[in-house]
């Protein structure tokens, strides 16, 4: 977009430019209207949750976008009670998700590089297996996962039941397939001539990986990171099954306690918790956005 067609006629140029500018402004206006529509669609349920979190009634229906009365009661319930240590849960979730995110990105980047750049026997089969394992409906694997982590914990307690280590181990295993696939796709979209020419210059795979490809795929590292973070952060069933101590539980499990009873759900408290819980994700995204969006600099392409 930045490059401009050349023409020698000065007058014609300004006319075209003026016309272009006008056209662009029109386009921009249309785009902004479209974006506003999308934003409205994305946010009105959120506003509704916010409204539920300050509404004095504990109900999810019959709520307007504007609450029928504002109270911070739900937030107080959430934050000031030693029986459900919300801040502790929040911290646990952030800790577990961050560690999972970093390790998962690292490990799956290695794997993706290998699948994308090497042609070896068994490559297709391995790739397909990794993927098929990934699409296996895992709703029933929880019993086996529990037993496995229990077994490991008998020997290495910091990776057993009631440990964040064990939980992270399970998350890592679960996220690898999809992340590897995701990144392999991106590695594939980076032309091979880049590293082939480096190879001719005598660079090792390790150098090519770190100095040429890694900076190039930074956007996707950030994307995969955020996706892993969110998936880990929102997981309910695995954390619930592996962790039973209140102090160790994660946010999703903790919040569910408020709506676990069939007839006495505390929707207001839950909505407040869900909103506060969404904050770390938004903050993380703001932090990572520069990598996602501005990931491609001229320097990186030159390698």
């Amino acid at each position: 977009m930045s490059s401009v067609a050349t023409t020698t006629d000065r007058q014609g140029r300004t006319a075209i430019q003026r016309e272009r500018r006008r056209q662009r402004q029109r386009q921009l206006a249309v785009r902004i209207v479209l974006l506003l529509l999308a934003l409205a669609y994305a946010l009105f349920p959120i506003i509704w949750i916010a409204s539920a979190s300050v509404d004095p009634r504990n109900s999810l229906v019959n709520l307007g976008l504007i609450p029928r009365g504002a109270t911070l009661k739900n937030y107080e319930t959430l934050l000031n009670n030693s029986i459900h240590p919300f801040t502790r849960w929040l911290w646990n979730s952030i800790k577990v998700s961050t560690i999972t995110m970093v390790l998962s990105v690292l490990v799956s980047t290695f794997a993706a590089y290998s699948f994308s750049r090497f042609r070896f026997r068994g490559r297709d089969a391995t790739l397909l297996t990794v993927f098929l394992i990934q699409v296996f409906p895992n709703s029933l694997t929880i019993v086996a996962t529990f037993l496995l982590i229990q077994e490991i914990g008998n020997y290495i307690p910091s990776f057993g039941l009631n440990s964040h280590g064990g939980l992270i181990l399970v998350y890592l295993g679960g996220a690898l397939g999809i992340n590897t696939w995701l990144m392999k796709g991106f590695f594939d979209s980076v032309p091979r001539d880049l590293d082939e020419s480096a190879m001719i210059d005598g660079a090792s795979h390790w150098r090519i990986f770190w100095q040429i490809l890694f900076p190039l795929v930074r956007p996707i590292l950030a994307v995969v990171g955020i996706l892993t973070f969110i998936a880990t952060y929102n997981d309910y069933i695995i954390a619930l099954t592996l962790l039973k101590n209140t102090q160790q539980q994660t946010l999703a499990v903790g919040l569910n306690l408020f709506v676990g009873e069939q007839f006495s759900q505390q929707w207001g408290v839950f909505a407040a918790g869900a909103l506060l819980g969404a904050l770390p994700v938004v903050v993380l995204y703001l932090l990572m956005q520069d990598y996602i969006v501005g990931g491609l600099t001229a320097g990186a392409v030159k390698g």
């Binding site: 929880i142 619930l240 209140t246 676990g260 009873e261």
Partner: peptide
């Protein structure tokens, strides 16, 4: 140990 009322039975069967 706090377990949501709706989860107690299923978790008990596993654990």
């Amino acid at each position: 140990q706090q377990v949501g009322f709706g989860d107690i039975r299923d978790q008990f069967i596993v654990a």
